[in-house]
Structure formats: structure tokens, C-alpha cells
Design a protein around this nucleic acid. Structure first.
Length: 260
DNA sequence: CGTCTTGTTAAGGC
DNA sequence: TGCCTTAACAAGAC
């Protein structure tokens, strides 16, 4: 559940199930998940409550009533599970039992997720060297980011210290909709290219978030439903190709997307 | 069997 | 030095 829209969905999920409930039990999973000593998590969480949630990039920060924050990073396969029965999911890495008997698990089969304790959003942002949250900046701020950026555009957009929240799927989507080849050099993009990328980014993140939260289908004009080698490009011009950039599978249409 | 996957990071090449 | 690539982590889908 990893890129910005999916984390937003998890944020709303916690907001609608788990705020303002006293935590009475804490169960912890695999050591590698925990970025502070496990006993600190137990001590901090027990008797505490979730007050509100905040998001920066792919990180979800949960404000605790009695001081400090719990930070969740979902890795590739992490998600929250709120339930009222007795079967805790197999790969639960953190399970909280609330006073009313309900429970909340952080489930993470591949164990790429992480849990942190921190004092404030600002401190955490600095500590993790995170760029601005993708949907918090305006067009000018987005364009300004590129002033000193070099290298291929896909890697730039994936760089969380450059801009936080974009990942493999929606970077491919942004570049597809902007008709920019993923191997284009960041320094070769014009103001017009950057402006178009920004508008598409905002539109895509909004649409995908709504698809998660309101069940709206992702438009067929998006790359997303055709993101597979040899598929017809939704623009009807070419066939989707795959290449590797930064070790990640990168899908694009060679007819639509121009190398700059 | 093998290959693929929404993320991040270390290590090494050029 | 900066940019880029691979491999590693680990589980499950196909």
C-alpha cells in the first residue's frame, strides 16, 4: 500500500477506526520493522491514545495523546487492519488492543515496512531528509525544484529527498500523460514540460486517491490499466514497452513519449 | 521451477 | 564527484 494515494487511504482508515481509544495491549512483530528499541514502542503506546494523523510523502505520522508520534512506513506490502474478532493476521508486525476490545494491526508480509518513534513532524522530516510532500506545493515551487536537478527524470521524481510521495507506478503515469520519455534528462525539460508534469501529477494523485477512497475506477486513458509489455497504448498509437531505470520496471509508450 | 512486484539502501562502476 | 546500475531484503502471485 505504498505511494502517496495509498498512504492517504491508510490515513483515513486509521482516522475512521482508531482515534481517541485507549490502548490496553501491545503486540510486536519482527525486530527489523522497529527503528527504536521494541520496549520503547511498548512503553510509549500502552495506556496512550491516537489523537490525529498527518502525512508526509509515504510516511504516516500518528500523534499520541501523551507526547510523541508513531510513524508508519508501509514498504511494498504494508497495510492497516482494524478488526473485532480474535484472529490476528499472519504477518501482523504491530497489534494494538483498544479499551473497547477492538484491535488495529500493522500487517506487513514482506517486512519492508518500518515503524518509528519521533517527537515532531519537522524533526522526522529532517531526520529522513524528505523533500516537500507532493501535494503540498504549488506549480512554481515544483518548477523551482528542478533548477539544479540533473539526471534522468524518472529517478528525480522517485527521489524522496527531492519530492516526497511519488513511486514507481505514478511516476510512470505522470511521464506517460505528459508525453515525456522516462530517460529524458531533467535538465533538458522546459518550463512548459514541468508545468504540464505538475498539472498531471496533481490530477493523477487526486484521481487515484479518489479511486481508493470512493471506489471510482481509474480512467482507461491512464497508463495504469495497460501497464504491461506489449499492451496497446490507450492513445492507440503504439505498444507499451518496458525498460529498467534505477532497478525498477519502467513502462512507457515509445510513440507518445519523447526523449528530451 | 522461474519471474514478477506500489520501497529503500549499500556497494561498486564509470 | 555525481550519476547510474545492480543486489539485497522477503513473501506471495502467476
Amino acid at each position: 500500500m505504498p505511494e502517496l494515494p495509498e498512504v492517504t487511504y491508510q490515513k483515513l482508515y486509521i482516522d475512521s477506526t482508531s482515534l481517541n481509544k485507549k490502548i490496553v495491549e501491545v503486540e510486536l512483530g519482527a525486530d527489523k520493522i522497529f527503528q527504536s528499541p521494541k520496549k520503547d514502542f511498548k512503553e510509549k503506546l500502552i495506556g496512550n491514545e491516537f489523537i490525529e494523523t498527518q502525512q508526509i510523502g509515504k510516511y504516516l505520522l500518528v500523534q499520541l495523546k501523551q507526547d510523541g508520534m508513531l510513524v508508519i512506513h508501509f514498504g511494498m506490502t504494508g497495510k492497516m487492519d482494524y478488526f473485532n474478532h480474535d484472529e490476528v493476521q499472519k504477518h501482523a508486525q504491530l497489534t494494538l488492543k483498544f479499551e473497547d476490545g477492538s484491535r488495529l494491526s500493522f500487517v506487513c508480509p514482506r517486512k519492508f515496512g518500518k515503524l518509528f518513534l519521533t517527537d515532531s513532524l519537522e524533526q522526522f522530516k529532517k531526520q529522513q531528509n524528505l523533500g516537500p510532500h507532493a501535494t503540498d506545493i504549488d506549480e512554481k515551487a515544483f518548477i523551482d525544484l528542478f533548477e539544479k536537478k540533473k539526471g534522468n527524470i524518472k529517478s528525480a521524481l522517485m527521489d524522496q529527498s527531492f519530492i516526497a510521495g511519488l513511486g514507481n507506478l505514478y511516476v510512470d503515469e505522470m511521464l506517460f500523460q505528459s508525453e515525456i520519455h522516462p530517460k529524458s534528462k531533467a535538465e533538458n525539460l522546459t518550463q512548459k514540460d514541468l508545468s504540464l508534469m505538475f498539472k498531471n501529477m496533481v490530477e493523477i494523485l487526486d484521481t487515484v486517491t479518489k479511486s481508493k477512497t470512493e471506489g471510482i475506477k481509474i480512467p482507461d486513458s491512464y497508463l495504469r490499466p495497460h501497464r504491461s509489455e506489449g499492451e496497446d497504448c490507450p492513445n492507440g498509437k503504439g505498444k507499451i514497452e518496458m525498460t529498467k531505470i534505477g532497478g525498477r520496471s519502467t513502462y512507457f509508450c515509445p510513440e507518445c513519449q519523447e526523449i528530451k
